[in-house]
């Protein structure tokens, strides 16, 4: 974990030095140097320059920043970057295989599962993680999972359609 925070107080504020560590995102190592208070979401965007992960509410409610860490979809605004050192991080940039979109990305296009696109990376990572863990997930449980994230454009209907279509396609392809 490289350098540790230095002790010391100045005018009532905690002074912290940056920590140096490595984030592994989509199979690539990114050496970073950030304060402990820097969230994983901010670090992925600003240090790794992977801006596909979006930040909406910054307190865990909207789900726009959802990414996959060690096989679990989590809110990257509710983790500090230093906590993700040594873990396998997946973001929306890692979904496509070269120019070939992930089946879920294609389904979002086919079913008009996005309008402004702000919430889309979060929905994609949440749904990909869910379909990887539970390829046979039922409609009702899928709806319960998708209730985790907010979308202000689509009214959700087309997102649900897209995820169901991807589920069926991925299952048929197995």
């Amino acid at each position: 974990m490289g350098e540790r925070a230095a002790e010391g107080l100045v005018t009532g504020f905690v002074m912290t030095e940056k920590l140096a560590f490595t984030l592994n995102v989509n199979g690539r190592d990114f050496p970073v140097r950030v304060e402990p208070r820097r969230t994983l979401a901010d670090t992925i965007r600003e240090e790794c320059k992977l801006t596909g992960t979006h930040l909406g509410c910054e307190h865990g409610v909207c789900g726009a920043c959802t990414i996959i860490i060690d096989g679990e979809a989590v809110r990257s605004c509710l983790m500090f970057a230093v906590q993700a050192a040594g873990k396998r991080i997946r973001t929306v940039e890692g979904l496509a295989n070269g120019n070939e979109l992930h089946p879920l990305q294609r389904a979002f296009i086919a079913h008009h599962g996005l309008q402004c696109g702000f919430c889309t990376p979060g929905f994609l990572m949440l749904a990909v993680n869910t379909l990887e863990q539970q390829p046979d997930i039922g409609d009702e449980e899928l709806l319960d999972v998708l209730a985790s994230n907010l979308c202000r454009c689509t009214g959700y209907g087309n997102i649900v359609k897209a995820v169901k279509a991807a589920r069926d396609e991925m299952r048929a392809g197995k």
Binding site: M1, A5, E7, F13, V14, M15, T16, L19, E35, P36, R37, R38, T39, D42, E58, F80, V82
Partner: peptide
């Protein structure tokens, strides 16, 4: 908003 600074300990 962003959290205020703190010192991080990882026992």
């Amino acid at each position: 908003m962003k959290p205020a600074p703190f010192q991080y300990h990882a026992p």
